[in-house]
Amino acid sequence: MRYLSVLLLSLLPLLAQAVEVGERLAPWTLLDQFDQAYSLDDQTRTLLVARGMDGAKLVKEALQDRPKGYLEARHTVFVADIQRMPALIAKMFAIPAMRDYNYRVLLDRDARVATRYAGAEDKVLWLQLDNGRLVAQQEYATAAALREALEKAPH
């Protein structure tokens, strides 16, 4: 019985509805590393989602040496799924370190946003939006490829 319960719980993420091209993304609001709220709106053109630490590191490397406001100028927001990070580590070390970043990190502490968008744990998911609708999606496995895509993004 215990085995069956574990199996069913492990399959739950597969049952989540993945957003399809042409669909409007459901609204959400998250706090950033400064506890400032951000709500997804129709002005957002690109949504970057890191579902694990490896993806977040790719974003950090891709944005290294980029000026403050770089993502905002491209109407891009970055969501980091930190729900698996122990709360004490997040509060004492990780989030204070993020305050030194020159970009905004929207923190998905309860996995209520990042899990809406299917993607690999070790990659960065790029969702291209037009007035809140998904028009394309792609995953990036290297910081160089992500940086190149960001450079080409309209601003």
Rank of each mutant, 00 (worst) to 15 (best):
M1P: 05
Y3H: 11
L4A: 12
S5N: 08
L7F: 13
L7A: 13
L11K: 01
P13E: 10
P13N: 08
L14P: 00
L15Q: 13
A18D: 15
V21F: 03
E23M: 10
W28G: 08
W28Q: 06
D32Q: 11
Q33F: 09
Q33P: 07
F34W: 11
F34A: 13
Q36V: 09
D41E: 06
D42C: 01
Q43T: 13
Q43S: 14
V49Q: 09
A50S: 15
K57N: 10
L58I: 15
L58W: 09
A62M: 07
D65K: 11
R66M: 14
R66T: 14
K68C: 00
K68S: 09
G69K: 05
L71P: 03
E72R: 12
E72H: 08
E72C: 00
R74M: 05
H75W: 03
H75N: 14
T76W: 05
T76M: 08
M85A: 13
A87W: 05
A90K: 04
K91I: 00
M92F: 03
A94I: 12
I95E: 06
I95W: 03
I95Y: 03
P96S: 01
Y101E: 11
N102G: 08
N102E: 09
Y103N: 01
Y103K: 02
R104K: 11
L106R: 02
R109H: 04
Y117W: 10
A118K: 14
G119R: 06
K123M: 08
L125T: 10
W126H: 11
G132M: 05
R133F: 03
T142Q: 05
A144N: 06
A145D: 15
L146F: 06
A149F: 02
L150W: 02
